[in-house]
Design a protein around this nucleic acid. Structure first.
Lengths: 181, 181
DNA sequence: GAGTATCTGTTCAGTAATGAACAAATTGCG
DNA sequence: CGCAATTTGTTCATTACTGAACAGATACTC
């Protein structure tokens, strides 16, 4: 893959940062292209060179994070759940402004659902009903159970402003995952 | 004055920020154009579109702050010394990374001298030896006295990591200036 | 001191961003 | 409702930035 022009990256970074900032200040529906242009310090027309509209911008922002998480899954697939969960929680931590906004603010169900779908997809690869503790249980039920639990815990962690460090979260969440998959 | 293209401002801002950051990490002489290019995330050639070399960049950065201070002088000329000093100290505070670097780090005499010259120039406008407390004293001596004292106090304040808030600094320094001019 | 690596300053064709202008759509208010 | 103001999405010529290339200058190493 050939290198992307740094001007493109700068513009897109500025716009992603801008939309996160603005979403923490007002409802997404109330954000105008003008707002984004002003906040990102980018010409209004430039936005249309990269995105269809503000929804496209938000979609791409979300999808990029999902992609990053998917890559983490691949690289962490041979680790146990506690170690793997730590890697994920580090990612949550290092993109705090995004995840906190998307999970802690009530007005953003866009991401929550996308995140849940992603987890269902990933846990489906991991679950094994043929042997061990989950013998006799319905596969899809287990997947739903674990994925929902995961989202719920992470959501709670962000909504309560990180009541403890991310490595503690990782260890406890990892333990619970280990027990159920 | 017609508006400056925002791309120009962005590039110059990035470079000014970069040089301040780098100067806090290494000696100015050891900073390369490449370093600046990398840190500012700007093409190397772009630097030469704005500045002759790194010295020119530093000069312009310094001169811009001096110009801002000069503007503050003009707008504060009818205030008393305590109020005027407060305005200046607010400016120091809001550009902490610059002034702290330029005054608190021992290896940067560039700015200290420029700052002193500026203060001499400004105090010369204010001093009055014809009547009042300074009757009979040599004008240039008073100017030097006050300007040196000013630099020394501000330098000390930054070197000691702001031992008290800037408004306290302003009140005390302002009182001393009032007493001498 | 020779050889190598890095840094400098410049050129240049290609690309992205700009801002102004515009008509059409949407919103807000009396 | 009707009018005004704002927002939208697009166009276009102009401008700034890019990255690659280059020769010459410095710095580093054996």
């Amino acid at each position: 893959m050939s290198k992307v022009d740094r001007r493109i990256l700068k513009t897109q970074e500025a716009l992603k940062k801008a939309v996160i900032e603005l979403m923490s200040e007002k409802n997404f529906d109330d954000i105008t292209i003008q707002d984004l242009s002003d906040r990102a310090n980018v010409s209004r027309g430039t936005i249309y060179l990269h995105y269809m509209d503000k929804f496209d911008l938000l979609d791409k922002l979300i999808e990029e994070h999902i992609d990053e998480l998917r890559k983490l899954c691949e690289s962490a697939c041979q680790l146990d759940f506690i170690e793997a969960t730590l890697i994920f929680c580090e990612y949550f931590e290092s993109h705090y402004s995004f995840f906190s906004l998307m999970l802690a603010s009530k007005g953003a169900p866009y991401f929550r659902n996308r995140f849940l779908d992603f987890l269902i997809e990933e846990f489906r690869k991991e679950v094994d009903i043929n042997g061990g503790k989950n013998q006799g249980l319905h596969e899809e039920l287990i997947v739903r159970f674990v994925a929902s639990a995961y989202v719920g815990v992470v959501e709670w962690w962000f909504m309560n402003d990180k009541p403890f460090p991310h490595d503690v979260l990782a260890r406890q969440l990892g333990t619970l995952l280990e027990r159920n998959i």
